[in-house]
Structures are given as C-alpha cells and as structure tokens.
Nucleic acid binder design. Structure first.
Length: 909
RNA sequence: GGGCGGAUAGCUCAGCUGGUCAGAGCGCCUGGUUUACACCCAGGAGGUCGCGGGUUCGAUCCCUGCUCCGCCCACCA
C-alpha cells in the first residue's frame, strides 16, 4: 500500500549533496516549486479516479482586500488534503471567493466618497462596472496570496459566488424555498443600518458598550388620577409610543392595567397593558411601549394589538410629519433626543436622570448605530430547516472539533428565529422575485410600489412574461440577498448543483470543513440546513474550528486597530513552510493564540536543520546499497533510532487522524532535532567514515537515509517545500509526494517499538550528560579524552556495562573506559547503579569533594521523602500497587546511590 | 444576565485517563574553529504550576468559591 525507497545502489548522492547550499533559503525556491506543481496538475482532482475520495470546500475569502492570519490557518485544510493524497485518496480542495455584498459595497462606497462622488451620482450601471472591476482586481490578488502559502487547491475549479452558474444555483435555492412556502414577505421589526440603508440580520449586529443617560419621564393618566413614571435611554422614540406596559404581577401597578395614559408633549392617549416581559426591578418597573422602534416593544405590541408607528425614517431622521411635532423634526435622532429632553424638562415631565452603561447595536460592517424599525422584508422561516440540522449534530453525523462547539451550535439552533434574507443594497444577488403589473406599466420606484403588483412569482430563469396572466409588464424585486444566503449553499453549489454533475457525485458530501468560530451560526449552520434540504445529505462530517489569532498583547486583531499581521510578510521573512508549520501548530486544538513571531522563526530554523540533516546523510551516501526497509540490525543506536522512528510514524499518523496536528508537527520536530540529529547522527559519524564497502557503514547510512525519507514524508503536509526538495535528492526519492500513483507515499506503519532498548538508551544518554558535566567541573579541554573506570554499584542496566556503551561514552563524552586509572582519580559520578571514576586531568583541578557532598545531600533528601511516603500505612494499603512497587524501586536505587557516594567520598578524603 | 475558554520559568506556550511532570522554544549566562547546520553544538541560572477552601494516602492535574483576561449568546427599556 505504501512506498519505500526501492533497493538500489546509490551513486551521485554525494555529488548532489555537494551542490546543496549550506542554508535552506525558502524565498529563493518556493515560488518556482509551486509553479511546477501547479503546471504538473498535481492539485487537480479527477472525479473518475477510482480510489477513495476526499474533499474540502475552502471557505471563500471575501474579495475585499488582503489576506490576514485567519487565512494562514487554511493550512490546516491543505494539511488534510495533502495527507489524504499521500494515503492513496483522490482529494479535492475546492477554492473560491465570496462577493461579500455589504462589505464590498462599503469598501467601494468609501472609495467613491474619497473621490468626491457616490453611487447615486454614478448610477446603477456605472456602479456595477466599478464592482466588476474591483472583483477582477482583488479576486486575482487573493488567489495569488493563497498560492504563495503553498495551498494545493484545485484552481481549475475556482468558484466565485457571483459567477453565472453559481448565481443560478442561488436562484434555484431561493425559488425552491419560496415555492415550498418557507420564504415570505412581511412587516417586522428589523435591524436597520441608516448608513447602508439596508436591514441586517441579528447576527450582523455588533454590540458595543455605551455610556448613556437613563431618563425618568412622568406619563400622567388621562383621567387625571395619578401617573406612571417610565425609564428610557431613548426618550425621542416616545413620539412613536403606543402604549405603556407594567408587569401584571407588580402590586404597585396592577390597578393601572386597563387604564389610559397620556403621552407627554403630544397628548395622544396610550393604553396601559400588563405584560410579564416587563422587569419589575429595572427602572421604575413601568415601560413605555414603542413597537415601531424597539424589538422587545414590538413583541409586546403584537401581544396586545398596539398600533405600530414610525417616527424615525430609514435615514435615521426624525421628520415624520404625522407623529413628530414641527419643533422636534430634525435630520438627526440624537439632536431630536436633546430637543425632546429639553421640552420634557420645560413642561416638568422629566422626573430625573441617571448615568447608565449599556450595550448599543452597531452595524458590523460600517459601525453605524443600528436603528430598529418596522419594515417590509423577506424572511426565511427557520423551524422546518432547523429541525433536521439539529438532529444531524445530535446524532453525530456532523461533529465539531473541538467538540464544545457542538453545544454552542445546538443552543443557537434551538432558539432560531426567522431569518431576514433581504438587503436593500446595490451589490449582490437580486432576489428572483418578480412582480407582474398586468396591463399597467411597471412603476419606476418599485421599492415602494410592490403592493401594486397583480401577481408575484419566483423564477430561476429571467422571465419574459407572467406565468399567470402572460402579461409582459413585469419587474424584478430590487432587494438583494443576504451574502450568507448565497454562501450557505457553498459545498454543493460549487460542485455544480442543481445539476447532478460527476463532481457532485464524486466529491459530495465533503469531508472536513475548517473555519472560524465567529461564523458557526452565520455560515456553518446555514450550510447544514440548506444541504439537508436540497441534497438530503450533510455537507461535511467534521467541522474544525481553528484558533483566533490575537495580537501579542492579547487583543483582537482588526483593521481599525491597525494591529494586524500580514501573513505574506511572514512568508517573505521566514518562508511559507515556516508559516504553515506555525499555523498547524497553533491552529488546533487551541482557540485563542497570541501571535508570537518567534514561533514562526523557530520553524524556519527547523526547515534549515532538516535540510542539513539531509546534507550530512547524503554526503556520506556514496556506494551504499540502500535497503527498502533496513533491518534494525545489531547496533544499539540503529535499533534505537528505528524503534523511535516506528513510534513516530504511529504517533504522527494517529495525531493527524485525531485532528491533533499540533501534536504531530511537534513530534516530528522533536524526533528530527533531538533524537536523529543530536544523538543518532553524532553517534553514526564514525561509521560514516569507514570504507565504502564496510557493512557497518552501509547499515548506518541506510538507517539514516530511511529516517530522513520517513521524516520528510511525515512532514510534507505541513512543510511541503523543504520536504519535497529533499525528497527529490534522496536515492529512490524524487517525484511529487502528492502525485497520484499506485502506491501511497505516506510511510506505512513500522515494527512495534522496543521499549526496553529505549529505556537503556535513555540511561546511556543520561550517563553521557553526567560525564560531560563532570568533565566541565574538572576543567578538561574540549577535545581531550579522559580515562575512567566503570563498575557496578547497584542494579545497573547491563547495557551500560557493555562494549557498545563504552564505545558510545568514548565518542560522545570523550571518556575512555579503562581497567585501572593510569594516574590519580578525579571526579566520581554515581548514577543508575553505576560508579564511574574519572582520572584527574593532567593540568586541571583535582576532585572536589564539595561536589559529591552536595550530591549526597540531594540523595539523602530524596531518600527521606521516599521513606516518608512508604512509611505511610495509608499509602501502602490504598495506593495503586504498581505505584508502591515503583516507589520502593526508587528508594532502593537511591540507597544504592547513597552507598556508592559514601564510598567515593571516603576514598576522596 | 447566561454560557464557554484561559491564568504553569522574564516572554510565548506543552503538560493524555491524579503518584519522577515541573517541561520546550525564545531571552539571559558559561564554554565551543567536531564529516551537516552559528538559522549550529555542549551546559547553566530561572517557577509557592492565579488566590482560598474541599475530595484523596497523595493534586499543577478532580470539585467548589474568588480575582483577572478573552470570547460567544441574550428583546431589562
């Protein structure tokens, strides 16, 4: 199933190694490599390929400008796509971009404003051209940036949510929902953005804390008997009041229910109603009801059949002639507030005021304060759509990773309200709703003349006549769809839906979706709902929620704060491999990450380290017979590194499969640097120097090459560039690691690991460290070899007494084990049941009994601790027997060490 | 108002199912012209694991309260 290096005799490897630059310079090669891959068609997915399929739909970036670090997290998608290709799957990563109606219109309008003009001045046609130009320019720009990160998406299938086929899919989806009765038009209170002159959905409201004033206003009763004092932060909306509400359980006000209050300044009469939604202990417990300008009041109004009045218009002006007195009319609601308050004060209706901090809704695109008002809008009924979408998550057909998001999703879905899908923008998908005016010409201002239509119908195709009366006086609804409506059908619309294409058949449902938590409700939920509705299938099985990258101070990165980091700048500085490895490391499972450039730098160093490991091995590889899978052989270092390598393959594979990419990339890093480079290769160097035909050398080089070959493949999904470059130089390597082939390039599982050997080697390494320390204390020169005797002083690991160990000590610690010291004894090292006595250096310091005394103190403290624990009857009887046994072993070892140290100290004195 | 996550070395973070788990990288200090790499090698210093309780023979790890930070949801005007 998987490929290894084929058996062959190496020739030319050292020559190639000689040409390898000493330093890996990603900036010089990555772009060229990428172009080669792309030209070779490596990223293209073939729906007719018989191998198992795997697919990911790329969350389409907004075509509003440049990349941010969230896009670097897309590396997680590339990781899985490349990994699946390497394990024998035909994998599709389908890329695309989103028109982002409201966001893009905002950006372009700002541009126009800076040019001293506006979209109204330009006119609709010229504006559309401007938009098209924008998409042309920035759509390509975004794609180029994504490519620079090495993303292996199938660019031949690039989709844009405004492309003609996609537009048709959007219309199809809308028409189906409309014909099923799930989309309807009606007056409801909406979040109105006066600047964008459009409604926005609840999810697009950005709540910000404001310091306002709470005004207490006296509403006298119409019959002159008593009064109710209400509290409000928006006194100006009182002009549209149509009632006063109190809680029916509130004894203070019970007797007011059913009576009539008189609206100050205006004099209109208002019924007093009882409604349990009124909080008794907020303000005075009495509430003015303004159904036209407050969502909660709207619902109270609905329950009590109160009139809905509008005092504020869609520009945020308070100019309504019917409800606003002349002297209060103003172009600005805040000015209106001042005037209302002034008048209330003059007429002694203002009881008092107090400072009040609360949250005020803002448009999350332009920042304008949201004006709740009642308007005719298009709605999508959610309950029928939500139910199955809840069930698939409850049943685990769709799971979120980390799994805590399952609950977030379910909580939100269970409380869904109908979705306002229409927007009053110029940019976006026009609703495929048409009005027929029978024999009357279609009115010019359709927005206000919809009601005059004789017939209303939805149509996927542009209709030329009314299907009911064949009339030709028809006009399309001027509203556009919420951007999320169109992106909500992304996973299947990009594959050709509603047509039953080969792609849809082959790659749908997709496997993994990777996205940001802030759009779980906005986007993920809607994809699940539409997919179940239109395809009867879930759109994806696993939803990865990657981390939000904060700035180094823990603040959210945002354009307005100017604290964003440009991923491409990081690519320029450290290479795409480093940025990618970083993204995989921090992206999952963590959910909040402070940006730390040092971590990217660490991975750029790692790329260089790996490059040099390959250089070293290759420059020693001439004339070696490479074995496909070298046997562990007889050399303990070979056995050890191969055991560790087999463990690594298993661990990395499991970590990737278990969506723990961070664990995977760190394991590869540790193995390569700490074990392969620092221990194995250092120990193998003498064998590298042997004659080319020497079997010991052949074996060492084979093992080293095998390690490099495996590491490079394990790392490829994370760091494709440096790994491919090395792979191309390896004997038996070469050829794209993600190419389709009959054999998969992912390393197959190896043999079981050898834990006893790994333990022995760990003990050896510890001994080497101790001896290095001792050399330092003695002031021995770096290169100077020191003689030492070694004897068992307890239950030593037999391996440490072997010839192999002695050779390793000579090589790695420059300590030569002898029968008898030629001169005076120097430092004594006691560890792991061994006593090593080093000879005193010719011109160095002699042994320092103080060092041994310090060590002795530590050992004694340790013994005391262990004895105390074992002396505790509860511990011995209740603790896990295994733990007790281990503690006894520790105590035995410590006592052995104390004895050995005592002896050593007495001899030194 | 409800919910979630975080608080471990100067900095950024690992620490799985409680008992060698107190770690890594960077920074700092010492020493290094080795068949790769100074983007390197060998070492060192540095932490009451946010605070208070509790469970347990034993807690960084479990429970609870508190403080601080971040985030999500919410129609208390």
């Amino acid at each position: 199933m998987a490929a290894d290096i084929p058996e062959s005799s190496i020739s030319g490897a050292p020559a190639r190694a000689a040409e390898m630059p000493k330093t890996w310079r990603p900036q010089e090669v990555e772009e060229g490599m990428y172009q080669e891959w792309e030209a070779a068609g490596l990223f293209h997915a073939d729906p007719t390929d018989p191998r198992p399929h795997f697919s990911v739909a790329m969350p389409p970036p907004n075509v509003t400008g440049e990349l941010h670090l969230g896009h670097a997290e897309y590396t997680l998608q590339d990781l899985y796509v490349r990994y699946k290709r390497m394990t024998g799957h035909e994998a599709l990563w389908l890329p695309g971009t989103d028109h982002a109606a409201i966001a893009t219109q905002n950006v372009i309008e700002k541009q126009l404003a800076s040019e001293g003009t506006s979209k109204e001045e330009l006119g609709r046609a010229a504006f559309d051209q401007r938009v098209a130009r924008w998409y042309e320019e920035y759509g390509g720009y975004i794609v180029r940036q994504l490519k620079r990160l090495g993303f292996s998406a199938d660019w031949s299938r690039l989709r844009f949510t405004m492309d003609e086929p996609y537009v048709r899919a959007v219309r199809e989806a809308f028409v189906r929902l409309y014909n099923d009765g799930l989309i309807y038009r009606g007056p409801r209170i909406v979040n109105w953005c006066p600047r964008d002159r459009s409604s926005i959905s609840d999810l697009e409201v950005d709540w910000q804390e404001h310091e306002d004033t709470l005004y207490y206003i006296r509403y006298d009763m119409a019959d002159g008997e008593g009064a109710l004092v209400i509290a409000t932060v928006r006194p100006e909306t009182m002009l549209a009041d149509t009632g006063v509400a109190v809680n029916p359980n509130d004894p203070r006000y019970r007797e007011f229910i059913g009576r009539t209050a008189r609206l100050p300044l205006v004099g209109r009469t208002l019924p007093v109603v009882g409604d349990e939604s009124v909080t008794m202990d907020f303000g005075t417990g009495a509430l003015k009801v303004t159904p036209g300008h407050d969502p909660m009041d709207y619902e109270i109004g609905q329950r009590h059949s109160l009139e809905v009045l509008s005092a504020i218009d869609k520009d945020g002006n308070m100019v309504n002639e019917e409800w606003v007195p002349d002297e209060l009319r103003t172009r600005d609601a805040l000015t209106a507030r001042d005037r209302v308050v002034e008048m209330l004060r003059d007429r002694e209706h203002l009881v008092r005021t107090e400072a009040y901090v609360h949250e005020v809704g803002h448009c999350d695109r332009c920042g304008e304060i949201i004006q709740p008002l009642v308007d005719d809008q298009w709605w999508c009924a959610m309950s029928d759509l939500a139910r199955p979408a809840i069930e698939v998550v409850e049943r685990g057909e769709v799971t979120f990773i980390p799994d805590k998001w399952n609950r977030t999703y379910l909580d939100w879905m269970r409380g869904l309200r109908d979705w306002n899908v229409s927007r009053q923008l110029w940019l976006g998908h026009r609703l495929p709703i048409y009005y027929c005016f029978a024999d009357q010409p279609a009115p010019h201002d359709l927005a206000s003349a919809r009601e005059a239509a004789t017939h209303v119908f939805a149509s996927v195709e542009e209709p030329s006549a009314c299907p009911e009366c064949a009339g030709r006086n028809i006009a399309q609804d001027p509203d556009v769809l919420d951007t999320w409506f169109s992106s909500g059908i992304w996973p299947f619309a990009t594959l050709g839906w509603p047509d039953q294409t080969a792609e849809l058949d082959a790659f749908y449902p997709t496997d993994v979706l990777d996205t940001a938590r802030e759009i779980i409700n906005l986007w993920v939920a809607r994809m699940i709902m539409t997919s179940l509705r239109f395809t009867g299938k879930v759109p994806f099985h696993h939803v990865l929620i990657h981390a939000v990258i904060q700035d180094p101070q823990g603040q959210r990165m945002s354009k307005s704060k100017g604290n964003g980091v440009d991923p491409l700048q990081m690519v320029e500085r450290y290479g795409a491999d480093a940025v990618r490895a970083w993204a995989c490391d921090v992206g999952l499972p963590r959910q909040d990450v402070r940006f730390d450039e040092r971590l990217i730098e660490e991975y750029s160093k790692f790329a260089n380290k790996l490059w040099n490991v390959a250089r070293l091995v290759l420059m020693n590889a001439d004339g070696v017979d490479v074995q496909a899978h070298p046997a562990r052989g007889s050399d303990p270092f070979d056995q050890w590194i191969l055991s560790r390598l087999d463990g690594l393959v298993a661990g990395v594979t499991a970590a990737i499969d278990g969506y723990r990419p961070s664990e995977a990339v760190r394991a590869i890093y540790e193995f390569t640097w700490k074990e392969l480079a620092d221990w194995y290769l250092e120990a193998a160097k003498p064998r590298f120097r042997l004659d080319a035909a020497d079997p010991a050398r052949q074996q060492a080089v084979s093992v080293a090459l095998h390690c490099v070959s495996v590491v490079v493949r394990l790392l490829h999904p994370f760091m494709p560039f440096v790994t491919q470059a090395i792979w191309d130089l390896l004997p038996g390597g070469g050829g794209a690691l993600i190419a389709r082939s009959t054999t998969a390039s992912w390393p197959p599982p190896g043999e079981p690991t050898d834990p006893p050997l790994e333990t022995s080697m760990a003990a050896l390494f510890e001994l080497v460290r101790r001896l290095r320390d001792a050399r330092k204390e003695l002031g021995v020169g770096e290169r100077e070899h020191v003689p030492a005797t070694l004897r068992q002083a307890g239950t030593a690991d037999p391996f440490l007494l072997s010839v192999h160990a002695a050779e390793a000590l000579a090589l790695l610690a420059r300590v030569d084990i002898v029968e008898e010291l030629p001169g005076e004894p120097g430092r004594v090292v006691v560890t792991d049941g061994l006593e090593v006595v080093m000879g005193a250096p010719a011109a160095g310091r002699s042994s320092d009994p103080g060092v041994l005394a310090t060590e002795m103190a530590a050992v004694k403290a340790n013994i005391e601790r262990l004895e105390q624990r074992l002396g505790n009857a509860d511990f011995v009887s209740k603790a896990n027997p295994e733990v007790v046994r281990r503690t006894r072993d520790q105590l035995d070892a410590a006592q052995e060490k104390r004895a050995a140290l005592e002896e050593a100290i007495s001899r030194a004195e």
